[in-house]
Amino acid sequence: MKPFPQHLLSITDLTRAQINALIDFSQPFLDLSRDDIRKASTMRGKTVINLFFENSTRTRSSFEIAGKRLSADVINISASMSAVQKGETLMDTGQTLAAMRPHVVVVRHGDSGSCHFLAKHTQGTSIVNGGDGAHEHPTQVLTDLLTLKNAWGDVKGKVITIVGDIKHSRVARSHLLAAKIMGYSVRVVAPKTLLPLHIEKMGCDVFHRFEDAIVGSDCIYMLRIQNERLKTNCSFPSIREYHEAYGLNMARFKLASDALILHPGPMNRGVEITSDVANHAQSQVLNQVENGVAMRMAILSTLCGLEAL
């Protein structure tokens, strides 16, 4: 297996063997997270900075818990309290933090390419992409692959149907890239207003009617409708109409009743998913959250060169 890269910016930074290795490394961390004593000394003496320019509860706390369970020192910085508001550039913020010599900096930023920019302009630290604009979110996809692999054994040949705001979704883009590496196929479902131009050229099947896409799906991946975006740039006439056309309700779920249900959270119940489906036994939403901590433990320790517990 090739050595792991210094940074994790894109899911394409990893080979299939490396992705499978990360999934394997995560398994003991799943057990550790259910032990009475949820602490290992693996990352003792390592420093991790969570640098979040966008609000995030689950990704940030997932990385924080992952680091702390492995005894790393974890520092959280959010844009609202940082020098950004005083006019500091992204480069200066990145270089200032890098000069404090952390081993890993996890970055979430609203601009596509921001993590690549920081990786290029800092030395001596590993940058982890915690979500850059509408571009990529590799750690979420690795988490999803751990979830699916533990449910199915293998993702190869499976069909994942992603529903909702594909245009603004970094999760969808990372899945489209991961599908090629891991050998699963992706369908996307949305009105054209929520699809980027030429998405079919990115290697997926495109649907506008939910019912057409759902039959034959092994996994239904619901994306969050960003209510905050609705006020300024309305890509559909109303929540009511969106729910009618693209909400996952029990009637639609029955068209693929063996499928697993995934959602990167936070869910809008009654908008993209109804409560009965969200609470269904095949919903993996809470498994995704639990697996997210284990996967991020695997990612952090691997980037620090500590590949096993």
């Binding site: 596509s112 390419g113 850059d132 604009g133 509408a134 571009h135 990529e136 603004h168 970094r170 883009r173 980027p196 131009l197 030429h198 998405i199 050229k201 990115m202």
Partner: peptide, 15 residues
């Protein structure tokens, strides 16, 4: 430009 590159990079495009 709005096209395959903007779609891949998740950037707002100019058609």
């Amino acid at each position: 430009n709005e096209g395959i590159v903007s779609s891949m990079l998740g950037l707002k495009g100019m058609p």
